[in-house]
Amino acid sequence: MATGNGNRKSPSNAVKIILVIVAVVFLISWISKATTGMADSTWLNIRDGFLITFAAFLTLSIFSFLYNDNPFYKFAEHLYVGVSAAYWMCLGFWSIIVGNFVPHASKTLSTFFKVPFQEYSWFYYVAFAFGVILLMRLLPKAGWIARWPLAVIIGTTAGFNLSRYLHSDFMSQVGNTFQPLFVDWQGAGHFFSNLSLAADGQLVMSAGNWIVVVGVLCGLVYFFFSKEHKGMFGAASRLGIWILMITFGASFGYTVMGRISLLVGRITFLFDDWLSIL
């Protein structure tokens, strides 16, 4: 197995045999898909057969990581990283430079890239200049200037997010916690004579509001860093972290269910699109 130190061993005979078997299996799969294809052209059947077989091979190669790191996973990983890096670079060039900058910078370039010229805008030249300055780091003597656009980006982001987060994470959160602790209160007699576990009942709705209010306050206490978490403050903090953990548990289960659906999607592909046994 190759390591990060660069030490490489030649594959053993067992590995060679496994590689050959896998190659033969997928070759048979390709031939089978090509001969049973429904497309009008033979070449289309061959192409579609190859694409489905190769997709199945890559899917199984990624799954093979569950056993251990192996040559199939390495191949799939490097192919994925290489292709995606190139794809994103092309996407960045065509969407940012050609899609945004060129239509506002040059009629000649717009004609060359066949994108409609819109109007000259100095704003785009500033962004372009920032990009060029970022690349100055490639020059040893002028590398220091590359910090300027970074400083502008980080500073602008921090300033912009300040008001945004203050609105969404402070004002709105505080406002949404304003809940009555006793919903539709008509006296203790009415409350106890109408005890019910119905979701829209007074008891359940009031209990829900209590959990929200106490949970938020205890959560805030947990994230209070200026005071040691001892005594009552410590008890509130512990309750806060308990509420957080219960929330995380529910979120964990919910997300795992989502991941299971992704797994079902890949298995459906393997058994239906590839093996055609569903």
């Binding site: 190759a2 390591t3 990060g4 990624i62 990581f65 251990n68 790191d69 996973y73 390495k74 799939a76 990983e77 994925y80 990283v81 292709v83 995606s84 890096a85 794809y87 994103w88 960045g92």
Partner: peptide, 21 residues
């Protein structure tokens, strides 16, 4: 830099984890 692709990046990090330990 590895890749802008979310799971391409994750696959590469996994590779680094199991190889460089």
């Amino acid at each position: 830099y590895v890749s802008d692709e979310q799971f391409g990046f994750a696959a590469a990090v996994d590779g680094i984890l199991v190889r460089d330990k």
